[in-house]
Write a protein that binds this DNA or RNA. Structure first.
Length: 638
RNA sequence: GCUCACAUAGCUCAGAUGGUAGAGCACAUCCUUGGUAAGGAUGAGGUCAUCGGUUCAAAUCCGAUUGUGAGCUCCA
């Protein structure tokens, strides 16, 4: 009998009969391990515990707690859910695909008879639990594509037939558990009994193969974990995210609202929200001036012809709002670049004048599809911290690096981690192949030079050029697209921008579109969730509230309030006829950083007693001391 | 835009099977002057998102519209 040599992760080598399975190997090491292991990695391939090992190689057993175990477990759980659905609803539904995703898994079903509703979840979960209890073995089998097509066709599973036909393989693998069989690459756990913690979470529509021209499927979302403890931790995370939801906090903190009467996706900023915006916008202006940008402003509407010149009319029309007055068409700007082009063109530019960096906090309107709107994170009118850098080709590299540094500085100030992505030419685009290649390599080399790791998204660029996207990671480790740097050779061409070079000839400049936080609206939404509404002192719209204990101190409180306000502190006083505890509670719930308590004791000493929103308090201090204290803290955090 | 669900007082939510609405918080008035997360009493607040239909009768059933949510597709 032939033997093969199996090397284990600890370096030890076991010699086993050819055709032994990972399960056999695991059993040879220990029964506990054999029970714990759900799949195996052989060289670089993932295998089932029951796959025969015909060659020598490195074998690692994947136990339930291994990093790659969760995806396998969830994928198997998706099969379990599909099995339950088929047993419950039979021929009324067809199965399609069911992968594992970040926080769980889903399975897409087609049915024109059955519509899934959340009330079905309990039935499906119950059936899944039964199948777990039955502890069905999950087995793999291989057959030719023709046989598999025959099999699925006989079962009426047309989507599976289509999948196999498109795969174009000679052989495919199938997994079987009880009466349920599914086309699948694997690997899978050995038995259904291993699945312990799962829960259906939601139902939603999804297009077959993600294409809106295809049939709408019904997607059942669910989640699964190796054990109940991890499952509870996941639910706690969801709970935390829900508490931080900027739509909820936005209302509670009285920052902004939306109005059905005004229109969907149009933000209405309340005093505190508008103040917060103003603080961020002032910060932006200061930071841009510091880095050699010029502040400019363009009009809200520009003639339709100009949008034709820029290519927006061709490529972006369906997202634009148009209006017509005196038989002249205008487009409401969805981007800020046009006016910046016009500024550049107002005079002859020398190579010595470049780069020109035009910065605008520009309000743009885009008709986003109604279904994508989401609080502040996706709106129809928003303000970009937009700039267009018009430079010589030899300056691209330094400018891109400058922008990347800017992004990193700002991310640091707000306490975000970040990652970057490079997006290349999409199908619908303008410009020559050569320009695209140059622009793409310019961005790439800037990324490479600073040693910034990045992912590449093929075909994800803007219609006029490739881009670097920056994703911020918030306190809950969620990613948000904010900054983007886009390289554009096309617009200078279309607008015939030129500069006079050292040689006295006219040359074509290059343009970089870039935003740092992206949209002020979205960024504030992200900030609210990142800080859970507890803005750092320098951002808090209300930094302190002066609270009296009894009416006796009312006049002194008013005096303190005006002194603090004169010192530039954003302060309120709360003189309402309520008990101290009540006022403290309200101030704390509105997440005001400092509550300044004033009773007879403080009044006599001309002091105030600060208390932080986390409940900690400081020793009483004078008004001047508090003013210095606040100035220090603001200084330290930005 | 597509699929499914939802829309009752400023907010959070009750209101089987059709018979013109209720709670808590918030708000107002009064009492209370109370030292670090809710003092008490009284009161005012709703064309049940909008429009249409079915019915003797609609918050409740049906349709359309608007808005919202979860996704899909798209995106700052």
């Amino acid at each position: 009998m032939a033997t093969v040599k199996i090397e284990l992760p600890d370096g030890s080598v076991r010699e086993v009969e050819a055709g032994s399975t990972p399960y056999d190997v695991a059993l040879g090491i220990g029964e506990g391990l054999a029970r714990q292991a759900i799949a195996a990695r052989f060289d670089d391939q993932l295998l089932d515990m029951s796959t025969p090992l015909e060659n020598s190689g490195k074998l690692a057993l994947i136990t339930q707690n291994a990093p790659e175990a969760l995806a396998i477990l969830r994928h198997s759980c998706a099969h379990l859910m599909a099995q339950a659905v088929k047993e419950l609803y039979g021929a009324d539904v067809q199965v399609t695909i069911g992968p594992s995703i970040d926080n769980g898994f889903y399975y897409d079903f087609f049915s024109d008879k059955k519509t899934f509703v959340p009330e079905d979840f309990a039935d499906i979960e119950k059936k899944m639990a039964e199948l777990v209890k039955a502890d069905l073995p999950i087995t793999r089998e291989e057959m030719t594509s023709a046989e598999a097509i025959e099999l699925f066709r006989s079962m009426g599973e047309n989507y599976k037939v289509e999948l196999i036909e498109d795969l174009g393989e000679t052989n495919v693998s199938l997994y079987r558990q009880g009466d349920f069989v599914d086309l699948c690459r694997g690997p899978h756990i050995p038995r259904t009994g291993i699945l312990k913690a799962f829960k259906l979470t939601s139902v939603a529509g999804a297009y077959w193969r993600g294409d809106e021209k295809n049939a709408m499927l019904q997607r059942l979302y669910a989640t699964a974990f190796a054990d109940k403890k991890q499952f509870r931790a996941h639910l706690a995370r969801l709970e935390e995210a829900k508490k931080r939801d900027h739509r909820k906090l936005g209302r509670e903190l009285d920052l902004f609202s939306f109005s059905e009467e005004a229109g969907a996706g149009l933000v209405i900023w309340h005093p505190k929200g508008a103040l917060l915006r103003t603080i961020i916008e002032d910060f932006e202006r200061k930071e841009h001036l510091k880095r050699g940008y010029d502040i400019v402003m363009g009009p809200q509407i520009l003639k339709t012809e100009l949008w034709k010149t820029s290519g927006h009319y061709e490529n972006y029309r369906e997202n634009m709002y148009f209006t017509e007055i005196d038989e002249q068409g205008y487009g409401i700007k969805p981007m800020n670049c046009l006016a910046h082009m016009l500024i550049y063109k107002t005079k002859l530019r020398s190579y010595r004048d470049l780069p020109q960096r035009y910065f605008e906090l520009g309000m743009v309107h885009r008709h986003e599809k109604s279904g994508v709107l989401h609080g502040l994170l996706r709106v129809r009118g928003f303000t970009q911290d937009d700039a267009h850098i018009i430079c010589r080709p030899d300056q691209i590299d330094a400018e891109v690096k400058g922008v990347m540094q800017f992004v990193q500085d700002v991310a640091g100030i707000f306490g975000f981690e970040y990652c970057m992505e490079l997006s290349t030419r999409p199908e619908k685009s303008i410009g020559s192949d050569a320009d695209w290649a140059r622009a793409t390599s310019a961005l790439k080399s800037a990324l490479d030079d600073v040693g910034q790791p990045y992912e590449v998204n093929e075909g994800d660029g803007a219609f006029y050029g490739p881009k670097i996207d920056v994703k911020l990671k918030d306190a809950l480790d969620r990613e948000w697209q904010c900054a983007t740097i886009q390289c554009d050779f096309t617009l200078p061409e279309r607008f015939d921008l030129t500069y006079v070079g050292a040689d006295g000839e006219k040359h074509r400049p290059v343009m970089l579109h870039r935003v740092i936080v992206g949209s002020i609206e979205r960024f504030i939404g992200v900030l609210i969730e990142h800080y859970a509404g507890n803005f750092p002192l320098w951002l808090s719209p209300v930094q302190a509230v002066v609270v009296n204990v009894t009416d006796n101190q009312a006049e002194y409180v008013r005096k303190v309030e005006s002194r603090l306000r004169e010192a530039g502190i954003r302060v309120q006083s709360d003189l309402r006829n309520e008990k101290l505890g009540f006022k403290i509670r309200e101030a704390q719930m509105s997440k005001i950083p400092y509550m300044l308590v004033v009773g007879d004791r403080e009044m006599e000493e001309e002091k105030l007693a600060p208390r932080f929103r986390d409940g900690k308090s400081l020793d009483p201090m004078t008004v001047d001391e508090f003013i210095r204290f606040v100035a220090d803290e603001v200084e330290r955090f930005h």
